[in-house]
Write a protein that binds this DNA or RNA. Sequence first.
DNA 1: GCAGAGCGGAACGATCCGTTCCACTGCTAA
DNA 2: TTAGCAGTGGAACGGATCGTTCCGCTCTGC
Lengths: 203, 203
Amino acid sequence: MTTAGRTRQAARNNEVILAAAREVFLADKRAPISAVAERAGVGISALYRRYASKEDMLRTLCHDGLQRFIAEAEQAMAIPGDWAAFEQFVRGVVDADVHSLTVHLAGTFPPDEQLTADATRANILAEALFDRARQDMRPGAVPADLTMLLEMCAAARVPDPERTRELRGRYLTMLLDGLRRGGELPGPAPTVEELNWRWISTP
Amino acid sequence: MTTAGRTRQAARNNEVILAAAREVFLADKRAPISAVAERAGVGISALYRRYASKEDMLRTLCHDGLQRFIAEAEQAMAIPGDWAAFEQFVRGVVDADVHSLTVHLAGTFPPDEQLTADATRANILAEALFDRARQDMRPGAVPADLTMLLEMCAAARVPDPERTRELRGRYLTMLLDGLRRGGELPGPAPTVEELNWRWISTP
DNA sequence: GCAGAGCGGAACGATCCGTTCCACTGCTAA
DNA sequence: TTAGCAGTGGAACGGATCGTTCCGCTCTGC
């Protein structure tokens, strides 16, 4: 359990490095790769032994984020209440800061085939959860709004990550209440093109 | 009115450059100064003739943003209805994207004495408007929440500025409805230190 | 007609960052 | 026990970016 041989230490580094990368790139998606090494307490070599390039690292992070998104959605699907399922799903996604790990990182490298496939599946699941809860929402709300709501929640941010989670819970409560009650929403809802413009990036 | 002498053209450039700077830095606060010149259709010299440095330019933009914020607040103060005054104020601020011009730019250069004085005045006005409308809000809401709400609205963004305004109106409606109705808000409200951490920056 | 304000944009120097490379360490396997 | 190498730290490199300066040109205002 303690520090064992070189191989075990290396295996532990796998997790340490991934966690450090997640923390660093969550705080600043344009962070240099040396910041990840510093945060992990390792040299740069330890990073390049595991990932072919920075882009490779970001892709892994993005992939993990999408998996987490999908997992949260599938888990919420099993909940009986329609609105309860939707709320648990959204709160789980916001709590894990999945949005910063996916959409925010997506613009920094050309999309992957696997990535787009996962993104499609994630969208289908999210839409299903949204549609289930639609009867409890104000008129005019559409699934595309969910993306923007997640984006807005991700913008609430203070230096301390734990406190950030707490504050996001506070404002997510306001947003969800505003999603349920009220009259017709003003202005046309966002289109798919307007939501996916990040992904285009530089090919 | 048309292109007159050199001096008139130069005077016109004053506005053109300022407008270009606002557009460019609103889209990306880390944008290079050459992007401003390109957008304005002038050379880099025309910029440096007017502003001593990039920091000087950002400071001017930030100052103008704060002035606009204060103007919106004072204007809204005259409205009789408490909630109506507050709503008009917030919508005006979001519509002008004042938040991106002030808080977002504030972190990129050391604060100015004039700037902090204006910021204090802006805070007092905003707090007054908030307190007037407090009776119409859900329990637990505090003025500090307003900063976060503006931050979240500023995060709603698509490539087209006009469409961005439209979408922000949509989600501001949701946020304001969520600010009025509902039970006690969860989690402690943000503190002053948590809200002003951007301003510290590198001295 | 001419002095110089105003300007365009190339050039410069500083900084930053991704990636490579090499010397070194100490476990592992025989 | 020991030879060998997987794993590592971090300096060094090369490319890119960007703020700022500078020089030569234009064209106006007097």
